[in-house]
């Protein structure tokens, strides 16, 4: 069986690497991206991903209107927003097709949420979360 592929985008290099390491211990294959452009480049590279873990502070997320683009071009890719509580509550409202998890130091909750999302995806192919 092919391993589960995750794309992880975070602003902070050390956070990226830490989370990659943590998630890899769970058996996932983790690719990383540093900006909105990189996410789109990686996604457009032909490889298939099962989940995108996205930090909203990644550069150009809003400038490139990343979330709309994702929904348009990759409607079957679940998105997990792993971020600080946004300053503007409306930001959260606009992310209705994504799942939000507040970032903290404990990676256990991230792992749990990722597992739940992957299960949901496996159960109802193509269904939005």
């Amino acid at each position: 069986m092919q391993s589960v592929r995750l794309l992880l985008a975070d602003r902070n290099r050390h956070v990226r690497e830490f989370l990659k390491r943590e998630l890899e211990t769970e058996g996932y294959t983790v690719a990383i991206a540093r900006s909105a452009q990189e996410i789109l480049t990686v996604l457009g590279g032909g490889e298939k991903f099962d989940l995108l873990i996205l930090d909203l502070e990644v550069p150009y997320v809003f400038e490139a209107d990343l979330l709309t683009q994702l929904q348009t071009f990759y409607p079957h890719l679940p998105v997990l927003i792993h971020s600080f509580q946004p300053e503007n509550p409306q930001t959260l409202a606009s992310l209705h097709h994504a799942v939000f998890l507040e970032k903290d130091e404990n990676p256990v909750r991230l792992k749990e949420t990722v597992a739940v999302l992957l299960q949901t995806k496996a159960a109802g192919r193509g269904q939005q979360v």
Binding site: N12, H14, V15, F18, L19, F84, K103, D104, E105, P107
Partner: peptide, 14 residues
């Protein structure tokens, strides 16, 4: 500060 601080917290946790 929050961003690097989170990183520190994560590493400390680890």
């Amino acid at each position: 500060i929050r961003n690097p601080l989170t990183s520190v917290k994560m590493r400390l946790y680890s």
